[in-house]
Each structure stands twice: as C-alpha cells, then as structure tokens.
C-alpha cells in the first residue's frame, strides 16, 4: 500500500468530524441541566432520562415500533433469502429488470411509497394500523436484505452444494444442512439491518400509522413542544446507542459470513 497522503488524510478526518458533529452533541444536551437546547451548558443531570422512564405514551410508541421492526425484519429477510438466492445462483429471463424493480425502493423518495400505499388503503377502505406501517417498511427493507444476503449467497462455493447432493442429500436437505448454516451470519445481519431501518423510519410511518404511533412519529410530535426537547435528546442518545450496538453486531456477522465462506472481505461495509 502507498503511504497515506497527509492532505487527503486530514480532509478525511475533517469530513468524519462533520459527519459525527450532530451525534456528538446528543450526549451534551441529553445530560445538560437546562430546559433550553442551546449553549452555554448549565450543569449535569439525569432528569431527562427519568422523565423518559415516566412517560407512558413513549413506552407505548416504543412497544409499537419494536413490534413493527421485528415483524418487518422477519418478513423482509424471508423475501430477501429467496430473492438473493435467485439473483446469486440462477439466471432467468429479464433477471436484471426484475431485480432492478425490486430494488427500486432504495432510491424512491419515501414520501412516494407512503403516499402510494395510503391511496390504496383509503380506496380499499382499510383502517391504518401497525400492519399498514409494516407493509411499507417491508417494501423499503427488502432491497437492503437482498443486497446483504446476495453477497452471502454469492460467496458460497457451489461445489459445497454439489458435494452434499453427491453424498445422497436431497435439494431440500442440502438447503437446511449446508446452505442455511453457511448463510446464517448473513441472515442475522439482514435481520438487524432491516430492524434498524424500520425502527428509525419516519415518513412512511407518518403516513400509514393509525392510533398506535411509532417511536419516530412520537418524537416528531414532541419536537413541537420546546419543553419536551431535552428528553427527546435523552431519547435520541439512547436510540443512537441502540442503533450502534445493532449495527456493530450486524457488521460482525457480515464479516463472519465472509470468513466462513472463505471469501476475502469485500470491503463494501454495510451496503
């Protein structure tokens, strides 16, 4: 490897600081003993966290969000397993077009997804609920699941499958005894990523949520009340910690998947 260029390195470090600046402010205000989110700081307190503990509506929103995120993660990972297997292992007519179409929600503005589903639900006369949010979240999480799982399937040496068949195992048996164990880290990684995305998603939930609001929708409501902001900061701090833990776990499993299948680290991070 070439020696690092000092100016480029400096730039990259400054860029990282820019990326992290907002997040680094979170703990500062989460522990600041002042009802106003502004400098200068006044003192240290845990009050905002206690307040979170006592807010019932928040707990309900958290419960809703967790339920939605878990169901979304499971559904989009199952869809992702099949689709990723197809895209990594088989050729079929219009493959590029089909896969491309499924991946469209990656770039589609989320408001379009929200609006489109809302229109359908209203026309069908269906009530908005956690399920309607799940429908939208599965749509945007599936492409991420496919991307993660396709790389896990692609790294799978095809001769392992052939060896299993050769040793008398059926196609189904091969899937459960060889393929599934080897892509399990990828599956866990996909579950965690989909869970994280769903937990954080606002726009679709904003359009499709019923009376049971999700956590981001709850936070959105709180942002209008200046008095609630410090506890939102505290909540945000907790959510960042949670996301970070989920993310690092997902990354660990993704790398383990690559190691297990003997592939070199593809260096694509979480994408």
């Amino acid at each position: 490897m070439k020696s690092a260029s000092p100016s480029l390195l400096t730039y990259a470090v400054i860029y990282l600081i820019f990326l992290y600046a907002p997040i680094l402010l979170l703990p500062i205000f989460a522990f600041n003993d002042s009802a106003i989110i502004a400098l200068p700081l006044s003192g240290f307190t845990f009050d905002w966290f206690y307040l979170l503990w006592e807010t019932e509506a928040l707990h309900q929103a958290l419960y809703n969000s967790l339920t939605i995120a878990i169901i979304t993660a499971v559904i989009s990972t199952i869809l992702g397993i099949f689709a990723a297997r197809a895209s990594a292992r088989y050729d079929f007519p219009a493959k590029r077009g089909i896969v491309g179409f499924i991946m469209v929600p990656l770039v589609l503005p989320e408001i379009i997804v929200g609006v489109a589903l809302l229109v359908v639900l209203v026309q069908l006369g269906l009530a908005l609920s956690s399920w309607t949010v799940i429908i939208g979240h599965v749509l945007i999480c599936t492409p991420f699941s496919i991307a993660i799982l396709a790389s896990a399937f692609r790294n799978l040496d095809i001769s392992l499958e052939e060896a299993s068949l050769d040793l008398g195992e059926s196609q189904v048996g091969t899937f459960f005894r060889v393929i599934l164990p080897l892509v399990t880290p990828g599956i866990i990684s996909s579950l965690l990523i989909a869970f994280t995305i769903s937990l954080d998603e606002f726009i679709i939930a904003f359009f499709l949520t019923g009376t049971d609001v999700t956590l981001p929708v709850y936070i959105w409501g709180q942002l209008r009340f200046p008095a609630r902001l410090p506890s939102v900061m505290a909540l945000g701090f907790l959510m960042v910690i949670l996301s970070l833990m989920l993310l690092l776990t997902a990354e660990y499993f993704r790398r383990r998947a690559n190691r297990l299948s003997g592939a070199a680290d593809t260096d694509k991070g979480l994408f």
């Binding site: 040496d157 001769s159 392992l160 052939e162 060896a163 299993s164 050769d166 040793l167 008398g168 195992e169 048996g173 005894r177 060889v178 164990p181 080897l182 297990l260 299948s261 003997g262």
Partner: peptide, 26 residues
C-alpha cells in the same frame, strides 16, 4: 457414484467426523 471435488468442498461449518459422516445421516 461419489465425487472428490477439485476444491475438496469440505463443509466449513462441520468437523472432520461430521464431514465424513455427512452422507450416512440418511
């Protein structure tokens, strides 16, 4: 027929004994 693959295709998630006994499971 049984095959010895060019890459050997040893199942990486199984021990040597589990690899060898793989086909007998049925």
């Amino acid at each position: 027929t049984n095959m010895v693959f060019q890459s050997y295709a040893i199942f990486p998630h199984l021990t040597v004994a589990e690899n060898v006994g793989y086909g007998l499971k049925k």
